[in-house]
Amino acid sequence: MQRPGSIGGSAAIHIRAAGGVLLLAHLALVAWLSLRPLDVPWVMPANLRPLATIRADLALGLPEAARRIGGGLALLAPLGVLLPMAHGRLLASPAASLVRTVAAGALLSLGIALLQSGVPGRVVDVDLPLLNTAGVALAHLAVVPAARCRLRRRAERRQRTALRQDEPAQGRTPTIPRVGIAPWSDALPPSST
């Protein structure tokens, strides 16, 4: 049975399947990038003050700050598109979709940060979940509303085309205006008297 507001037809199944496969591939890549041990001789202490790392990155200058902050924004940004794609709802509320997607991205980012605390060579940085969550929100806002609008228009166009194809080839059946009832004297055969 199809969920209310979900995309219908075989195209929807393909979109959801592609979203699910891409989501799993992206999560595997994120796990490999974030949770593999690093062989480093020295590790910085954990950062538990919000925005301290971002300020330090900005102090390094524009190219290095853009690389570091951009990396934090880009790590989980594809989730902003892949989560709604895997869910497959066309008629979802934009605000509710954004909240669900950002909440899922924030929880995943916090989970990664907690898991990193036990990985050798990795350090907990409270700014990374903030940047990751902001990246998810920005990607969602940039892509999902426009994509849903485009898919809705395409679905409406297909529906209109299907309705037109259901009509007979000769067009609509003409309607005949009502004919009044003839008086009985006109309907009876002439009498022989």
Rank of each mutant, 00 (worst) to 15 (best):
R3P: 01
S6Q: 13
I7C: 05
G8Y: 07
A17P: 00
V21S: 09
L24A: 15
L24S: 14
L29M: 14
V30P: 02
V30R: 05
W32I: 10
S34H: 01
L35H: 09
R36P: 09
L38Y: 08
V43N: 11
P45Y: 04
A52K: 10
A59G: 08
A59C: 04
L60D: 02
L60H: 06
R68P: 00
A77Y: 04
L79N: 05
V81N: 01
L83V: 13
P84V: 10
P84K: 06
R89M: 05
L91A: 15
S93W: 06
A96K: 13
S97I: 00
T101W: 01
T101G: 05
T101Y: 00
V102C: 07
A103E: 02
G105I: 03
A106R: 01
G111D: 08
A113C: 11
Q116F: 03
G118R: 08
P120F: 08
P120A: 11
G121F: 03
V124K: 00
D127V: 04
L131R: 01
L141H: 03
L141D: 07
A142R: 05
A142Q: 11
V144R: 01
P145K: 07
P145Q: 04
A147M: 08
R148M: 12
R150S: 15
R153I: 02
A155L: 09
R157I: 06
R158W: 09
R164K: 04
Q170V: 10
Q170N: 10
P174K: 07
P174T: 03
I176P: 00
V179D: 10
V179I: 11
I181M: 12
I181H: 14
P183S: 14
P183I: 06
D186V: 06
A187K: 02
P190F: 08
S192L: 13
